[in-house]
Design a binder for these strands. Sequence first.
RNA 1: GGCGCGGUGGCAGAGUGGUUAUGCAGCGGACUGCAACUCCGUGUACGCCGGUUCGAUUCCGACCCGCGCCUCCA
Length: 460
Amino acid sequence: MLKLHNTLTGRKDDFIPLDPDRITLYVCGPTVYNYVHIGNARPVVVFDVLYRLLRRLYPQVVYARNITDIDDKIIKAAADNGEEISALTARFTTAFEEDMGRLNALPPTVVPKATDHIGDMLTMIETLIAKGHAYQADGHVLFAVESMPDYGKLSGRNLEDMLAGARVEVADYKRHPGDFVLWKPSSDDQPGWESPWGRGRPGWHIECSAMIHKHLGDVIDIHGGGQDLIFPHHENEIAQGCCAHGTDYVRYWMHNGYINIDGEKMSKSLGNFRLVRELLKEYPGEVLRFALLSSHYRSPLNFSAEVLDQAGKSLDGLYYALLGRGEQVEPDAGYRLPEDHPVLLALRDDLNTAEAISALHAVAAKLNKAELPEKPAIKAELLAGAELLGLLESDPVAWFQNQGSADDGLANDEIDALVAERTAAKKARDFARADQIRDQLKDAGIQLEDTREGTRWSRD
RNA sequence: GGCGCGGUGGCAGAGUGGUUAUGCAGCGGACUGCAACUCCGUGUACGCCGGUUCGAUUCCGACCCGCGCCUCCA
């Protein structure tokens, strides 16, 4: 049994798929007007683990993650750059995919783009108007929140509460202050598409509902995203999806917590963000991924150099286990993690990645202690458990030798030559010379280890 | 004002009504020419105050503190 925390119920619920032969998962992807920050990467990595887990548990998983490539922030960024919108969005879409690849995130099954689905959105808006859930006003089409009796059920608020705390100026063409835009007019210098209501562009929420309907179905199993999307984005998606099709929309809503900097939410508007692209210059992608998975996905994660350094060291420990003590061990082929394996049990409990990592450490310790004949099976177990988390995907030797290689000034063959010289000195029992070489390498950031099978080295 | 989340050992971070999280760092030991790696051992942890209980960090209530959403935001 898989248990998932459902925002709709506020509880950890048993996951019962609509169709066990076809699981549907949708995650809100980026608006492509900039490089993404590490906070944007959290849902990608978290739901990548969910995707990996679902694939292990069910025969087919359809996973869609959208690209929002039409939006007022995009229009502004393109204008500021003097760049075509399509060129800007293509550039940042590629950058996003590269960055997420470095974090070992698998590509989703479907990556729908908003601008490829304008027709689907128009159809859905027309349906909403026909059913009396939307109306035209001042060139806009708006969703009428009062037409939906249980509007607000995801975020746990009602229309009166929202009025009391309203911090927004309300456009005078709205029937109710909570009404939200499905379609809005474009001026001549703004991108637009012809529609029954004139040339315009879609509101923010409609794309996800339209693309879910097209690619996944009327009702899907799981929809994920950051906590900041609960209101208004996901609340409004529910309104659109339920009212247009007269069905439920999403069975399990999952929301990840924020990444904090100095105890405050990291966000583009606060300006305290760290770009994934910049972080990747200092840390391997897998270290960033490990850090993101080191705490539970719903908890806030305070991001700092200390957290990343600890993640790196902890990951080193797992890679050391794979590396072994100089012996050659091939993992058993065809190994499959048993149903009741601690890693699988941890992940099935609402993606308890911290506990899963702990279980991985236990396997690593077992591997370190094992006799040679036992090692292939345990090594396969470690790799299989790590694969569910998207970890330990590098070659262990490369893992230790490629870190920081840009700035230590020593090429791999120079290091190999010095190591060989030290080995010769050791054989001649010239330990003074051997230690001198080791100190020299240490100053250059190279650590040596003597194993039964010879000396090996790694970069800090 | 409305709604919601959290406070765990030096740090990060799970979890549980009674017995070990785990990792990193530290300390002692084994191994090693010396190291490193590894192994073994090692920590008076659960915001404050009441309540329930044979027993609470874990359940209930109040309080203090921090954070988030209610506006674009993962």
